[in-house]
Design a binder for these strands. Structure first.
Lengths: 182, 182
DNA sequence: CTGAAACTTGAGCAATGATTCCAATTCTGA
DNA sequence: TCAGAATTGGAATCATTGCTCAAGTTTCAG
């Protein structure tokens, strides 16, 4: 069962292909055939490394969600500006993963599957972190509500930037952050 | 070619099914079989009324985009509060269409298909309208940028509310609107 | 009433989806 | 170098997809 080097490498290649396809085509375009073709691998090989399509996709989805949380060590000392900058940086420097992240966030809004719960939990954690930073800066009583609006704006701007990269994401994000400062 | 009443009725039933499926399952869950089953119709009937799956879906997508623009007559006189309230009302009173709307907005961020262009044009029109309202209220020079942040926040909040209906969408939207007022 | 146009059904088709199997090949540690 | 495990290719399987077709049923203008 212990993986050999070759296996680990093709595993990475497959995950890369899934990331790319999920980012540019969404779930519907991410077929086994497309994945294998993009990764230069045959179907049999894919199933040797993953239990199925879903598992491979979930791996990328988790990767995307994790990438949004900047080092949790800082928790409790970070400022609104830092949190904002970290998010802007994630979105702009890893647009593929960012697209996957946004897609899940929106897709989760549907019905049924529990992935909505997972994402919701992640979101609440983020709101708390932003709210704490805001409360530190600015003594307003409604820090949590301000954090919700702030995060909504950041997410909305991210979508906008992913749709049209001419958008001044960084500048607008700072504008949004400025509104809650002091 | 002139349609009979029966045809128009099943056409509506089919569009309703597409709206529901698109809203709750996204593109991938919206299959001909699912549509026909939900509409209580057989495949042949579907193809008698629509050229294909895509056409039926596009009809609903257009419906969703159009629903976001509240009466264009008012253009040039509406206030930020009114525009905000109209959007909140659309999202909360027609959540199915709203989900479709949000999904396209995000899905359009991908590559290839021209639907991204269509949505982008729609978005720009909205930004202009908000910017005009903001400029009227408040003489700030950066009304357009404020409008972009404002719209991003509204869209982000809509996503959040669709994910978790406990979210105080209306209140938070007003909070966001308040920030740009005078 | 009548007949042509519109509507409905449901079986059926080609293409594509995910997945399995297994023989052939490549690694790796001893 | 060698045995056994890991990895690989690719054909085969089985369900599902979007869509067509021919045959009947309903509608409605004249």
């Amino acid at each position: 069962m212990a993986r050999y080097r070759a296996g680990l490498e093709t595993r990475d290649r497959i995950l890369g292909a899934v990331r790319k396809l999920l980012s540019s085509n969404g779930l519907e375009g991410t077929t086994i055939k497309a994945i294998c073709s993009a990764a230069g691998v045959q179907a049999g090989s894919f199933y040797n490394l993953f239990e199925g399509k879903e598992q491979a996709i979930l791996a990328v989805v988790r990767e995307a969600i994790d990438a949004v949380d900047p080092d949790p060590d800082h928790q409790g000392t970070d400022t609104v500006e830092e949190l904002t900058a970290a998010y802007v940086d994630f979105i702009t420097s890893q647009p593929d993963l960012a697209r996957v992240y946004i897609r899940i966030g929106v897709g989760a809004g549907l019905g049924g599957d529990h992935s909505g719960e997972t994402f919701l939990a992640h979101h609440r954690r983020r709101v708390e972190r932003f709210a704490a930073a805001i409360a530190r800066d600015n003594k307003a009583a409604d820090a949590t509500r301000q954090a919700e609006v702030m995060l909504a704006a950041l997410n909305g701007l991210a979508v906008q930037w992913l749709l049209d990269s001419d958008t001044d994401f960084e500048g607008l994000a700072k504008l949004a952050a400025g509104r809650v400062a002091s």
